[in-house]
Every structure is written in C-alpha cells, then in structure tokens.
Amino acid sequence: MNNVTDKIRSNDSLSLQAGNAAELSTRNLLGIEGMNPLEIRSLLDRGDQFANAMQQSGDDLSPLSDVLRGKTIINLFYENSTRTRVSFELATKRLGGAVLNISVAGSSVKKGETLLDTATTLNAMHPHILVVRHNCSGAARLLSQHVDAAVINAGDGRHEHPTQALLDALTIRRRVGQIEGLKIAICGDVANSRVARSNIHLLGTMGAEVSLVSPATLLPTGIERMGVIIATNLEEGIHDADIVMMLRLQTERMAGTETPSQREYYNFFGLDRSKLMRAAPNALIMHPGPMNRGVEIDSAMADDAQKSLIRTQVEMGVAARMACLEAIATKLANENKLQGNG
C-alpha cells in the first residue's frame, strides 16, 4: 500500500512542481472582471492537475506541494461560511502552508474595530496571503490597499466571489470538457448574488452563452449590458440549456418586498423535474450552496446523482483554490526575486 502511494506521489511531484503554477498578472485576486482568458485558463488547467492528484491520493491529505511552506495564510471571515473557509484551509494545508482562521464572532471586530484597524493588526503578523470575506462590496479591494499581503476575495457583498466562479468553471470543464459554446442559465436571486456576477464575467469571457432567469424584482439595473440574455420565466430561460446554475435566495440580504413568499417563489422559480425537462436532454444542475431546499431547488434535483454537480462543486473548491493560492505565492516569490536582483 505504501509503495503504491509513494509511486503516485513521485509521479505527481513532476507535474505538481511550482514551475507549472498558473500565471496571474496581479498579486491580488479581487474579482473575475478584468481577468483575461489566459489567466483564467491557466488557473483552470492548474486546478485540473490538482484535482487529479487529489483524487489519486484519496484520504491522504498530506501536502501535494510545498509552495506555501513557512507561509501563513489568514482566513478573515466577516460573514459565516462553511465550505469556502474550509476549502481555503484545506487548499492551504495541501500546499504546505499554515492557516489562521479569524471569524468575526469572537474577534475584536465585535468590539467595534474597523476593517482597516484589523488590517493593520493582521499586517503586523506578516501573513503571506489574506483571504477575506466581507458583507460590503469592495471590502477586499479596500483591504488590499492597506496590507502588504496579497489578498484573495472570498466574497465581498454583492460584488464578486471569484474563486466560486473558478471552481464552477473547473467543475463544468471536467464534466463536459469545455466551456466555450455551452448554454448556461444562471437562475434566481441575481440582484443579491456575487456568485452570479463572477460567473457572468468568467463564463462570458470563456465563450459560453449565458442567460439569466430571475423575477423582475431580483434583476439588477443594467445587467443586460453585461453580455447576457434575460428571462423572467424559468422554463423559457433554461430552454436548451446545457447547465442550469441555481442561485441561493439570499433572504439575509433582502428587504422583504422582493418576492411575495417562498411558496410563490418555488412555484415559479424553483427548479423541479418538470421544469428541468425544458433544458437540454443531458442538462446538469449546479448550486453554489448553501441550498434552500424547496425554495430555489427541489431536493430530488439537488440529490440526483446523474444530473447534479453540486457535490463535485464542493470537491473542486479545494483544487481551484489551490491553483489560486499557488499562483499568488509564485507571483509574490517572483516579485521578491525581482526586488532582490534590482
């Protein structure tokens, strides 16, 4: 058994060398908007390699690379999160790095400390990369202007959630083969969704045909100018779609007048088997989680092993984030080298 593992290890170590890291043009990953297709593709390629390696190593969670050895990654989460935080933590550990988790409950933020004061405090601890989630749009960018560490946006308000879009793309690519030319319907609470915005940018950049399906009250102004097709009827909107991506109804961000009731929402915008019939025959279902079962998606659809990619999305989260962390670590190392030579 040990022999087998070692063999896999040594094979992997060739392809997992840091030299194959994805290349980013900036040290921070604040959003998909503005990233070019080459950067996105290189992150997906690298995520693919990590996903393969992780599938081979199974339950063995020892590091696959030492690119983050001796480095500290701080997860600074101003909003609750399970999958994103845990997957950044796992991704860091599998790259040989150390993780500090700071969640707002039980931190000095509860005592009224501002984001920038927290940034200054954390900066003094010399983290390599700060992974931040915040309920305010633009918070990750603001933080990046005040710390020495690189910043990864793990979700800022209604703005962007770039690593979610990357893991979604990785999930699609591994299952379907390519993104270009696919018809992808993003359905539900677009107005309050950072996942929708990041996916619109990424899938559009990579050549998919993206449509949005949402009640008129949850369609933000001017979204049609972001290169998407708009529908307010789920069955029409997902017609012939290869991928149906459901969004969480973000009741926590809603004022209460957006939809009459969850029952009505489910009736018109919840994905069930009969509505899915309108999509392409082999259409696949995605959801960034956490799901409101019986609100935006029927449990039978969410748990359908043939059609649902939801579990794979979680799995790909680690691989996609490893690609991002490694790319940034490599970028920082190169910056240091340049400075050293200069």
Partner: peptide, 8 residues
C-alpha cells in the same frame, strides 16, 4: 449598470 457591476 455601474452599481450592478460594483455590487452596490
């Protein structure tokens, strides 16, 4: 469109 892009 700008507010939508910025998520504000």
């Amino acid at each position: 469109e700008t507010s939508t892009r910025l998520g504000l």
